[in-house]
Amino acid sequence: MNERSHRSSRVNAVGGLLVLTAAFAVAGVYHAATWDRPHREAMVAMLVAVYLLSLLIVALPPSLVFATRRRRVGIAAFWNLVCVALVAVSAALDGGLRSPIAAMMFVAVVFASVSYASVALVAAVGFAGLASTVAVGALVGGASWPYVTMFTSALAIVAGTCVWQAHMGRRRRRQLAEASRTDPLTGCLNRRGFVEQYERAVSEAERTGTPFALVEFDIDGFKEVNDVYGHEAGDRLLVQLVRRVRGVLRSADEIARLGGDEFVVLAAGADREGAQALVERIERALSPQTGSIGVAVYPHDGRTLDELYRAADAGVYKTKRSRRSEGKGTRTPGEAN
């Protein structure tokens, strides 16, 4: 996990501690006001034990407690299930579902839904809360079956709503993440999305020892399209050309728009020969338009993104200079069909 993820997990832990502090303060007042009733010492001892456990989780270094997603979800699940168990046992000791403590089960379920991105975790907490409530109502007694049915039904509705909310929240986060990494016109990756894919490609290349290639290209004469036909026609042309280029890419290849008519394809596992074959396919896809194309292969042409980009960019400009020196010029694209 990175530092940002550590901070986010730490905020969740601190938030959980604050909610727990408020809930325990309310429970403490209730226990003090009803101290003449049975099991108060045991109930207070459980409150203190769970609170100390929460303090320990918050006090430990985030890099230790939240080192991996599995550990983060595991600790969150453990802590929430401990809180559910505390509410269930305390309610049972206090007379069953008629105890005001039983209402704290709603707090545990709702807190999980607003604090965690894992739908499975929220569902697990909701199911545990519902199962515990049904068990307390069935085994302890103290409440009529209509009351038990109403209480558990209300909790089931709240738990189901929380799971749905967690699901929709995850869906919205995915949509926002996709939008932040995607060019809105062409659907290609934007610069941010491309950098993330590049970092993954480097990790894979280092792990397996296989190369990958960057194939950069732009559209010859694209400025004239915007000047003569307008930007709307230029946009339609880009969308059309990107669709055709996508048709010649492999499923593992990623295409990004870095700006204007500048694109780059990240070809996983491609060596120089494979990159050249990709260049030929891109040229056929762009036809009858022409594009200036440059290639860089990791790690032969560089190990950093800047080094590879400069190498590919040099190839693009070399193509342009070669065409000018040969007197061929460039083909000005017509308006997209």
Rank of each mutant, 00 (worst) to 15 (best):
L52M: 11
E280D: 13
R200L: 09
N190E: 06
T332Q: 09
W79R: 06
A296K: 07
V134P: 00
L241I: 14
K320M: 13
P288H: 07
A312N: 08
Y198W: 05
L238M: 14
L53V: 09
T182Y: 13
S5Y: 12
G16Q: 08
Y30F: 14
I101P: 00
D183M: 14
G302K: 12
L189A: 11
V242W: 14
E178T: 15
L286Y: 02
S322N: 10
D261G: 03
F222D: 03
E204H: 01
D220P: 07
P299N: 10
S63M: 02
F217G: 04
P299A: 13
G137K: 00
N226G: 15
G96Y: 03
A256I: 07
A120R: 15
S287Q: 14
R321G: 12
L308R: 12
I75S: 04
T210S: 09
N337S: 13
G137N: 01
E3G: 04
R69P: 07
G327S: 08
T182K: 15
S144H: 07
A233W: 09
W35D: 01
G230Q: 13
R37Y: 04
V264R: 00
G209I: 02
G315H: 05
T332I: 10
G15L: 12
N2P: 02
V11M: 13
V202A: 02
L155D: 02
G221A: 14
G274F: 05
L286F: 05
L249C: 14
A124V: 04
A45N: 06
L155K: 06
A135H: 05
A296E: 11
R4N: 12
A77G: 10
R72A: 04
P333N: 11
V50I: 09
M104R: 03
L97V: 00
A120M: 08
V242F: 15
R207M: 06
A267L: 01
T210L: 08
S325F: 13
V248F: 11
E206Y: 02
L238G: 05
G234A: 09
F212G: 00
Y317A: 11
E178P: 12
V122C: 04
S322W: 10
S251I: 14
A59I: 05
T210A: 12
R281W: 07
H231L: 13
V228F: 14
G294H: 06
G169W: 01
N190W: 07
V248E: 11
A159T: 04
N12S: 15
G160N: 12
S251H: 13
M104L: 11
T330E: 07
D253W: 08
A88L: 04
D235Q: 12
G234H: 11
Y229H: 15
S99K: 01
P211F: 04
R244N: 11
V84G: 01
L176T: 11
A92I: 02
K320T: 10
D253I: 08
R171P: 06
A201H: 01
G209H: 08
V122D: 00
A27D: 05
P288M: 09
T208K: 08
L305C: 15
E335C: 05
R281K: 13
P61M: 04
L17K: 14
E216G: 04
G141Y: 07
F217W: 10
L81C: 11
P288Y: 07
A76Y: 03
S153G: 07
A91C: 10
A311I: 10
G95F: 00
R243H: 14
A256K: 03
A268N: 02
L139T: 08
V279W: 02
V202E: 01
